[in-house]
Design a protein around this nucleic acid. Structure first.
Lengths: 194, 194
DNA sequence: GTCTATACACCGATAGAC
DNA sequence: GTCTATCGGTGTATAGAC
């Protein structure tokens, strides 16, 4: 049955607006047009639904990063495309980052969910680390220090901008992404002496 | 009465562990050793308590940034001190960033709380912008683009690192802060040609 | 200002009919 | 697989005694 999948996807959507902790079975049943008990039939406990959501996010993140990995663009181009994908997704939108939202409901998460959620972030971090490493070798991307540490700055900046956008408007996302790109650009000439 | 203040401070602490939405009057009354109704006497609605919390955060952020502004250190030194203050505060700690936590419960916030919360972030962003501007002039800090945009990267990186630390451990904070410092350091010599 | 008691809504979860 | 009905627990909020 893909009723199960339907529930998972609606849950992800609602997590982005009200968070995992505040999300209720009634919210889901209202929006899906089925009874609360029907959701419990597919996911006995809320925790089971939460874990399915995290697993789905692993799959999504794996798929998205793999698509960019294979796209044939330059390293810097891959970063740019990733940023602009996110910017499009969060333009004029009142949702927040699902990873950040779940991290914030830390105290409501089961151990399984925590492990799975960390995996989602790992996949994203590995994706950035790989691009940064090869980009620096090819002199397409410029930064100092370990690529894995620079990947943290990128991932956290993206997450933070998206989280603040509901409060401050999507301009904050555009500005953050532009600044990230600027700071990673290879220096054109002597213009970056100080 | 500073019972009122006591309630606000405990609320901030609990927001950092369970979030504003999941926080209940019973949680507060248990920890403070007073009855639920007594809290309602000081703050009729939960929304009133929430607004008091946001106002308190404005005061705290104002005080902290003012302290660093006046400390006489170099621009880069001020940044370093701010980072190490946060790193100390979040070492071996299971709390999250109170600003990020409240931002995440966006859909539970009153309009007043949203305005006030944005102000907290504004104060922090202005603080960073000012340091970055004067630091670049004095050639103590190096970055490209508008100082206000670079301030976003710093603020969001700090917030993101603290949010991920509960899941990944406080190492992630150390690494993020070190990488931020590295990327803002003035170039020592020709070592940053690419 | 603090307490006990309580009203009322909603939550996750279950029982059992269809 | 979906439904209605319901249970026990908990949430915000209020009433009223002290």
């Amino acid at each position: 049955m893909d009723r199960k999948q339907e529930i998972v996807e609606m849950t992800i959507e609602l997590i982005q607006t009200m968070g995992y902790g505040n999300l209720s079975f009634k919210d889901l049943s209202d929006r899906l047009g089925i009874a609360k008990a029907s959701i419990h039939h597919h996911f006995a406990k809320k925790e089971d639904l939460g874990l399915a959501v995290c697993n789905q996010m692993v799959e999504i993140m794996t798929g998205v990063t793999a698509k960019f990995d294979e796209c044939g663009n330059s390293s810097f181009g891959k970063l740019e495309m990733f940023f602009s994908m996110l910017a499009t997704q969060w333009d004029n939108c009142q949702k927040t980052c699902p990873i950040g939202s779940l991290q914030n409901d830390f105290y409501k998460l089961s151990e399984d969910m925590k492990i799975c959620l960390q995996k989602v972030e790992d996949i994203q971090l590995d994706f950035f680390t790989k691009i940064l490493t090869e980009g620096r070798e090819l002199k397409e991307i410029s930064f100092q220090g370990p690529a894995a540490d620079q990947a943290l700055i990128i991932a956290f900046s993206l997450k933070g901008a998206i989280q603040s956008a509901r409060l401050r408007g999507s301009d904050i996302i555009i500005r953050s992404f532009a600044q990230l790109k600027l700071s990673l650009q290879p220096l054109p000439s002597a213009s970056k002496i100080n």
